[in-house]
């Protein structure tokens, strides 16, 4: 498990929200698990690449996972946190 992940709340969702908020330039408190990455938050393909890069820095195991494998069928922050949990072993919440 990555040390940074542990110190930032320790859950996949908390880390994801923190990194997504940085990319969006919004306070993490305004992000919710049910929000659609594209339709609600305005993520585009470059931002998704950026998010993957940031998450890799937190969870090195993600370097072995392709962006498609991480995102396929995933639309919301909560669903992506679930995918992260299965990949990294961190609990969602």
């Amino acid at each position: 498990m990555d040390d940074n992940a542990t110190t930032s709340g320790g859950t996949a969702l908390a880390v994801l929200v923190e990194e997504a908020a940085r990319i969006l330039g919004r306070p993490p408190g305004r992000l919710e698990p049910g929000q659609h990455l594209q339709h609600d938050l305005g993520f585009d393909s470059v931002m998704l690449l950026q998010l993957k890069g940031r998450l890799e820095a937190r969870f090195p195991v993600l370097r072995e996972v392709s962006l498609p494998d991480l995102l396929l069928g995933v639309h919301t922050l909560g669903a992506l946190a679930g995918r992260l949990e299965r990949t990294t072993g961190l609990p969602v919440a």
Binding site: V46, L49, Q50, K52, G53, R54, E56, A57, L67
Partner: peptide, 17 residues
């Protein structure tokens, strides 16, 4: 299409692209 000036370099994206 993408803004030609959009920053992609140095964000960890080049290794994925």
């Amino acid at each position: 299409a993408e803004n030609a000036g959009r920053r992609m370099l140095g964000l960890g994206t080049e290794r994925q692209v």
